[in-house]
Design a protein around this nucleic acid. Structure first.
Lengths: 147, 147
DNA sequence: TGTTTATTATGACAAAAATCATGTTGTGGT
DNA sequence: ACCACAACATGATTTTTGTCATAATAAACA
C-alpha cells in the first residue's frame, strides 16, 4: 500500500508541520534523529519533496527544511504521489492490472469501499487541517518508531 | 499490506474454489497458466497451503490440488496468515511498531476504522460464502493478471 | 573573500523479496 | 514390477527496495 520511503516521508512532513516554521528550520539530521530513521535516506526524500514544492528548504548556516503557510495547504496525498507515485496506493488488492467495478477481482467488493474512503481522506484534508485535528483530539500522537 | 506471494495465494485458492473438486484436481502448472503467475513460485505457495491444511493435494497421475468441503469452510484470512503471516496485514500504516487507539500515529484515526472493517470481512466469510456471493452478484470476476 | 553550515548529487552497498532450477519421493495405471 | 506423472523439498539466482558513504554545490556571515 505504501513503501517504506512513503511512510518516512509522511512522518517527516508531519514532524515538520508540528515543529518547524519559516524562522525555525530543521536539518535533515535533526529530523532523522527525532523520527529514528536513517539520515541519508531521509535526506533524499526531503530533496524530492523540495523539488516537488511540498516542503521548503534553505541552504547555508541556519538553513534547513521547513513548512511555510503555502506548504501547509497541500495534502498528504501529494506527499504520497511525490514519493511512491500515484499507482501504488490505488492498485488492486490482488495486484490485477485491471480491477474496477465493471471487472472486479474476487475481493474487490470487500475492499474497494474502504480504499475509496481512505483515499478521499488523504486527498481532501490539508496538512494544516490534519494538525488541527490532532491538537483538538488531545491524545498525543507518536511519530517515533518505538516508544 | 499484502506481499506478492499472498496475492498469488489468494487468487490460487479462489481459482481452486471455482474450478476444482475432489474428483477434479488441478496441477500447479495448470493453475499458474490460468492465472499468469510463475509456476515454480506458485508451487511453493501451494505446498505451504497444503501443509497448513488450507488446500488438499494428491500425488501421482491424475493428482493435483483441490478444495474439499472442509477446505471451503476456511477463510481467506487463514490463507493470508499462512503465506504472509499475521502481522503484515495489521501493521501500522506508517510502520510504527506501537500504534493503537491509546498511542495512535498521526493518521491512525483516518485509517484504522477501515482496516478493522476489512480485517473483519476476511475473517468472517468462509471461502464457500465468498464464492456464493460472487455467483449471486452476476458480474464475472477476473483472476488473470490482465485481460 | 574565505570559512562554516547545510543542502544537493551521485553511486556503491546490503537486505529482502521474488523468481527460477534441480533433484527426490510418492502414487496410480499398465 | 515398472513407468509416467505430479507433488515435495531444497537451494541458487535475480530483482527490487532500502541503506549508506562521499564528494560537490550553494548560501550566509565575518
Amino acid at each position: 500500500m505504501l513503501t517504506n520511503a512513503g511512510k518516512y516521508a509522511i512522518r517527516a512532513v508531519i514532524y515538520l508541520a508540528i515543529h518547524s516554521s519559516a524562522d525555525k528550520k530543521l536539518g535533515a539530521k535533526t529530523i532523522a534523529n527525532a523520527l529514528e530513521i536513517p539520515q541519508a535516506f531521509l535526506a533524499q526524500l526531503l530533496r524530492t519533496l523540495t523539488v516537488d514544492k511540498l516542503i521548503s528548504s534553505s541552504k547555508g548556516p541556519g538553513g534547513g527544511f521547513f513548512l511555510d503557510d503555502d506548504d501547509r495547504k497541500n495534502t498528504l496525498w501529494q506527499v504520497i504521489v511525490s514519493i511512491d507515485g500515484e499507482h501504488r496506493f490505488q492498485e488492486c488488492f490482488l495486484g490485477l492490472s485491471k480491477c474496477d467495478d465493471a471487472h472486479p477481482c474476487p475481493v474487490h467488493h470487500m475492499v474497494s469501499p474502504f480504499k475509496k474512503e481512505m483515499l478521499f481522506n488523504f486527498q481532501e484534508r490539508t496538512i494544516a487541517q490534519l494538525i488541527d485535528e490532532i491538537k483538538d483530539n488531545g491524545t498525543v500522537v507518536s511519530l517515533k518508531m518505538s516508544h
